[in-house]
Simulated assay, not measured.
Amino acid sequence: MRDEEQIRRRVLEAADRLFYAYGIQAVGMDAVRAEAQVSLKRLYSAFGSKDALVAAFLRDRSRQWDAGLAAAAEQAGDDPRERLLAVYDFLGTWFEQDGFRGCAFINSFGELGGVSAEIAEAVREQKASFQDYVARLAAEAGAPPSLAPQLAILAEGAQSTAAISGDGAAAADARAAAESLIDAALAPAGAR
């Protein structure tokens, strides 16, 4: 990895830790510089502005989210129903991690979505991407299209509930509700 790429990665990892732990507005570029152990000049060379760094932070969080979901689905095997439920298993593991503070996208939107069109758009893109992912899993299970947004809303609600309550049980509660929705959606027409 080239030196510039290493610096960029260090800055991004430092920003991720700080923005997620304390919020975007509470963290200045000097704090990111100190955490990354780079000069301010190198930081601004890697990311021209705080807005650019925040956008990169959100893109990287989206990549992490997508990779985590894909790994959970892969662990669930070939059963489409279990692949759908793996979303909630992924959430359960995440909620139990030290430093869990909820969804970085929801948090970022709450902080800056009203004043930064770039952040609002990045958050909307991530949420749409998640809904598309759940829709693909639901289609693979043979469920009607209406199931996907219902399951996505359960996941989003579980994230907010776990962050506010500090209780990771929200994932298990959402998983149980998802099982009911999936089973009802997949039941033969006469059984509904």
Rank of each mutant, 00 (worst) to 15 (best):
M1F: 02
R2Y: 02
R17K: 14
R17H: 08
Y20R: 06
A21K: 03
G23C: 06
I24M: 00
G28M: 04
G28R: 06
D30C: 03
A31P: 08
A31W: 01
V32M: 05
V32P: 05
E35A: 11
Q37I: 04
S39E: 10
K41Y: 13
S45C: 06
S45T: 11
K50V: 13
A52Q: 09
A55F: 04
D60W: 14
D60F: 15
R63G: 03
G68T: 11
G68I: 09
A71Y: 00
A72N: 06
A76P: 11
D78V: 09
P80H: 02
P80D: 07
V87D: 02
V87G: 00
Y88A: 03
F90L: 04
F90P: 01
F90N: 08
G92I: 10
T93N: 06
G102Y: 11
G102A: 07
A104M: 07
E111R: 07
L112S: 03
V115D: 06
S116E: 00
A117V: 11
A120G: 15
E121Q: 14
A122K: 14
A122P: 04
V123Y: 09
Q126C: 09
A128F: 03
Q131W: 00
D132M: 10
V134P: 02
G142V: 10
P144H: 07
P144I: 11
E156T: 12
Q159K: 14
T161Y: 09
I164R: 10
G166D: 05
A170S: 11
A172D: 08
L181I: 09
P188R: 14
